[in-house]
Write a protein that binds this DNA or RNA. Structure first.
Lengths: 210, 210
DNA sequence: GTCTATACTTCGATAGAC
DNA sequence: GTCTATCGAAGTATAGAC
């Protein structure tokens, strides 16, 4: 898959990730992707057939990779609350490696999956499935209060995605100096989300505070 | 503002809201907006000068309206925890009236505010400012645990926006039947977020459970 | 696999009559 | 304020040589 023989497809995917994240599917320009990947545009069509094909390939990869890591947490043996901590930390780490992920995620939600085929949509569905499964484990073991898994999924990951995707606009807003938007560290925010999620899922009084 | 004399601009704005929410700025088509508004395309340019101008006018209105409601909560006299409940309920109600809001919000965050001028960006900044102010009130009154206002802003509103914007893609995913995505009521989700936020901000043990 | 050149389409925007 | 007609710029995609 990452054979040294065919670097073009991988370089194209990397360039596409940046372009799609920055501009969205409609705003992305095939010429720009080709230029960023330092390949000829015809090469891009040779490998991926169309802008749509490239987009879907990229997203399928991305979703599959992320879902795999989440599923690994689900399958591991650990206290339920720790698994939730790991879900949040893992998503943050994933974004750290793939900075384009959150923006693409936001756009895809807003688009209602308009450009996704059945296969890519299935790959995306594996994300809430994995996280929902972890929550369900905890609820069944009576470690968590009874919570719809999808509610927990949204309340723990939406802020992470939103916050990480919003780095640029926060900087713009901070620049206006009309709000106190001083950038605190991403790590602090992740810890905040872990604590908030623990407290939200805890049955009686919340877990340790730090 | 809603004078019967000039219906065109308002109809155009309403049509633009739908189009921009569904397709994003780059994906939106001026012809389609004009057709949806049942006005001539030249009319649209007469009133708004450009696609950009239309977009900014729409967003400025939207942000200003939403921020006004949030500021009203901040200025009201009520227990701090109740204000937080109201922030969440108010955003949900706002989206109920303006269904296009969450999608546009997601896209704008992903875009990093690329199409926004200074004035529109300032209008947007009023949202976190209002919510952050409410949190700060609570922290200073020692009703809430010490929490960076922006962290609280993201953890309480990002899920609401995300969940409401994601109605379409959730339906798509539910249709695949690979995950249990059964649609529970939006009201239930809002209540979930209110409880989760209360628990997250509570100083010692959390507030009432129901 | 790689490139150049270009066909074909769509879109934002405006000119100019009424 | 309103409409028709159209320009010019981009943009996706492909043909065809190497």
């Amino acid at each position: 898959m990452a054979r040294p023989a065919r670097v073009s497809p991988d370089r194209i995917l990397a360039a596409a990730a940046l372009e799609f994240a920055e501009r969205g599917f409609a705003g992305a320009r095939v010429d720009r992707i080709a230029r960023r990947a330092r390949v000829n545009k015809a090469m891009l069509y040779y490998h991926f057939k169309s802008k749509d094909g490239l987009y879907r390939t990229l997203l399928r990869r991305m979703f599959t990779l992320a879902a795999g890591r989440l599923r690994a947490i689900a399958d591991a043996s650990a206290p339920h609350a720790d698994k939730v901590d790991r879900v949040i930390a893992t998503m943050a780490a994933f974004v750290d490696e793939h900075a384009f992920f959150p923006a693409i995620m936001l756009r895809e939600v807003a688009d209602g999956g308009a450009h996704l085929d059945r296969e890519t949509l299935t790959a995306l569905a594996a994300l809430p499935a994995a996280v929902g499964g972890i929550v369900q484990q905890g609820v069944r073991a009576r470690a968590f209060r009874d919570t719809p898994p999808m509610f927990a999924y949204f309340s723990m990951l939406a802020p992470v995605i939103f916050y990480l995707a919003g780095a640029r606009i926060r900087k713009e807003i901070a620049h206006l100096k009309v709000v106190d938007m001083r950038e605190s560290s991403t790590d602090d925010f992740i810890r905040h989300m872990q604590h908030a999620t623990r407290r939200s899922l805890a049955r009686a009084r919340h877990a340790r505070t730090s």
